[in-house]
Amino acid sequence: MNVLSLLGRNLRHGPYTEPFPFGPAPTAERFRGRVVFDATTCEGCKICERVCPAGAIKFSKTKDGLAFALWHNSCVFCGNCEFHCPTGSVHQTTDWHLAHAQARKYALVELGLLPNQICSACGATALATAPSLRGVTPPLSPEETVTLKSMCPKCRAKFLKARRAKP
């Protein structure tokens, strides 16, 4: 009887083998896969470069601004960068389709650029990083965030100081 019930269960369940190369593969929701970078929300703190155990992340100064580069062939998918990123601009996706031919080895890079901008208050050249909003009370309105983003770090500090002193 035991064998018959087992047989029945297996017939009902179907094959246990995943159809993967011929069909889709199930992926966990929180799977730690390919890392992506969003330059619009990056604060430019470079903490991801500092905590990366494999040295896969590299920031470099260029004439256009601060360039971000992450080589997927060096990344160990530990998630340290995502864990330490204050804004979530570096995060891991569930994409794991990274197998590639040797010719594409050095093309598997995630690139981003924090461009230079002219400060809207003083006219100095500074990086267009996202403003750090932690500990700012009351929270900034969207218009204030845009104004703050267009300033250099010194003018941002002045702006926030003036805002604290206002009420």
């Binding site: 995943e18 794991w96 197998a99 040797q102």
Partner: peptide, 23 residues
């Protein structure tokens, strides 16, 4: 050695290895 296919991951998941083997 001349390498033909790379399967990155630490470790790569089994499906990724199968993908690499298929290539």
């Amino acid at each position: 050695l001349p390498i033909d296919v790379n399967v990155p991951g630490c470790p790569p998941r089994p499906q990724a290895i199968i993908e690499g083997v298929a290539q």
